[in-house]
Design a protein around this nucleic acid. Structure first.
Length: 159
DNA sequence: GCCAACGTTGGC
DNA sequence: GCCAACGTTGGC
């Protein structure tokens, strides 16, 4: 069995928050709307069942990691990409030849307190974390295991 | 609302 | 294939 990989996925809570995920019937959702090739490639090629995902709220006050989810379905075409009424419609993507892909995630835990960017920046173990790099915009990012562990530890400490 | 940092598009 | 113009992201 392949080693568990760790990821971070961004969402604007005004469009979809971790509370929305918690309110889903089975606390699962499909991660639609990604329209960036690198982020797509991560989802399509590298995300595997039971990989862990840090759930990040961007454009929030404060921007913060709010919990953890896990991959419960590996990549399949993002059907919203050929839905003309969808906000993320892409005329170049069709059911016959899909351009965009998504995965399903399931909520594992909501942190008692969101871990804000400020707090993350203060942690030595996270010095090289992609999220904290200036100009880091990618909505699906790789997280190293030591980084993931450090964040879980922070989440525990503040309970 | 500003704007730096990116990614994409399209003329050449 | 270059690169200017444009659009988007996302912290502040």
């Amino acid at each position: 069995m392949a080693a568990t990989k760790y990821w971070l996925m961004k969402t604007e809570p005004s469009s979809y928050s971790i509370q929305d995920l918690a309110a889903e019937k089975k606390q699962t959702t499909f991660w639609d709307g990604v329209r960036n090739y690198q982020a797509r490639n991560y989802m399509r090629d590298e995300m595997k069942l039971s990989d862990k995902v840090l759930f990040y709220h961007s454009n929030a006050d404060p921007p913060a990691i709010t919990g953890v989810a896990t991959i419960v379905r590996e990549s399949y075409p993002d059907h919203t990409s050929w839905d003309v009424d969808n906000k993320h419609y892409d005329p170049k993507s069709t059911a016959q030849s899909p351009r965009w892909f998504m995965v399903d995630i399931k909520l594992e835990q909501i942190f008692a307190e969101p871990i804000g960017l400020d707090q993350l920046r203060g942690v030595a173990a996270l010095r090289d974390m992609e999220l904290l790099r200036k100009g880091s915009r990618l909505s699906v990012q790789v997280v190293r295991k030591p980084e993931f562990d450090a964040i879980l530890k922070l989440a525990k400490k503040q309970r």
